[in-house]
Design a protein around this nucleic acid. Structure first.
Lengths: 237, 237
DNA sequence: ACTTTCAATAACGTATACTTAAACTTAAAT
DNA sequence: ATTTAAGTTTAAGTATACGTTATTGAAAGT
């Protein structure tokens, strides 16, 4: 059984169709899926009972899933009001981007400073190529996937499972905003350039440069998105 | 009721002795306390039942606490083996320090780039002074507390609650190691210097310098601790 | 002795039952 | 009419009950 990450979703592959998935786990991934796809829109609230019924299981595993989602910052659990899908404000965006920026710029520096495998390098360059192709075809959906893959792969290659888990978690937190703003923002030509530049810096083993480019890239992205939110009076998405 | 963080412990202050604390919450903080103080040593294992009895409550809130601790990386929960306090390897230390370094160096940069309040600045300088005093008196316990306070305060001042929660979590993960190595390492004169230098860079509004000093400071600390662990064949603490 | 099979045990996952107290209703009083 | 107080409802927190299945230990076979 393996896990593949696609756009923040943990997709489970059943190789030996043996292990049955515990209800608590099912509840967690199903709820998370519903939140990320906006099936459960921000602000919507549900009592334990309601969720349990919707998932056709008892409150016990439901509750466990809710606790986990709350820890991840996707929902809020208030004692007699159930679980509420948290909206994201510009301030939240700034915080989350601040964390992702810190982690990913560090990751870029780590890659520049280590012996990166040929395969690893290829996976990065493939992601950038995919981004270019997607942009040529004006295929924004493919572009997000490739972009996501690039950022994720960079952290994967550092070998830090903790760092990977963190960026995954925080990317999930702002997934909704990224998707809704995707068609409102200018075409991301600059992003592709930046990514190529990061790869170049990694290849040149220039640690500081790799960090700086990645940091700047993220800071620009955050600035643009937050500006977009404010201009469109989307104070909480 | 307020929370004060001292050395990774969330100490609850009962001001209006009104709100009763849910068992799940009690279980969480009590178990966490026991793990951080080494009352539950690394590697030790406990069944849900045993923990529930020790805390004189049922398995339900106990289980909830275990899930949360597992999410934080302090314990591991394996289906029929109960909860096991996770040991920390040099590789774990490297990962955790990698994350703290990324976050705190970013935090230092943020402080240098923003209008820091007079109070905020004072709190940082006070922590450095406390570190000096502690070192003069050869009082390592006070030194750790002041050091902890400095690092924590830096993140507090950025205003990012998410970043604060992260560094708290990861600091907790390596708390044991820091405490056991405290008396094995050379006197931390260099740390105090570094901290002063960071404050100076923040005052000078030199963003890059603040980041660089903080990063270097942490990287040196990590290197030293990991070396110490390896030299003393402490492969998992 | 060492491995393998099978049965007994018990730990976990989940459901359900119970208790408490917050939130809502209704009624009374100003 | 607005606030206050009492009563009712019900969601959450916790305990307990139950079924399933991994683990363990003994017995049988090599």
């Amino acid at each position: 059984m393996g896990l593949i990450h696609v756009m923040g979703f943990a997709v489970t592959i059943h190789e030996n169709e043996k292990a049955r998935i515990p209800f608590a786990e099912q509840a967690y991934s199903e709820l998370k899926r519903q939140i990320l796809t906006n099936e459960l829109p921000h602000g919507s609230q549900f009592l334990e009972q309601e969720i349990a019924e919707q998932l056709s299981m008892s409150r016990t595993p439901t509750r466990e899933a809710m606790v986990r989602l709350a820890n991840e910052g996707l929902v809020e659990v208030r004692p007699r009001h159930g679980m509420r899908v948290l909206p994201i404000s510009p301030k939240d965006m700034a915080e989350v981007y601040g964390i992702i920026t810190a982690l990913e710029s560090s990751a870029a520096g780590i890659l520049a400073g280590m012996d990166l495998s040929e395969d690893g390098l290829q996976s990065l360059m493939k992601a950038v190529d995919d981004m270019d192709t997607a942009l040529e075809h004006d295929d924004l959906n493919s572009w997000v996937i490739a972009d996501y893959e690039f950022h994720r792969q960079m952290v994967v290659l550092t070998g830090s499972v903790r760092m990977l888990q963190l960026v995954d978690t925080f990317r999930d937190q702002i997934h909704r905003v990224r998707m809704t703003t995707l068609h409102m923002r200018p075409k991301p030509y600059k992003s592709n350039e930046d990514h190529r530049a990061v790869v170049a810096a990694i290849l040149a083993r220039d640690v500081k440069k790799a960090r700086d480019i990645q940091r700047n890239h993220q800071e620009m992205a955050a600035k643009m998105l937050i500006k977009l939110l404010n201009e469109n009076h989307m104070t909480h998405i």
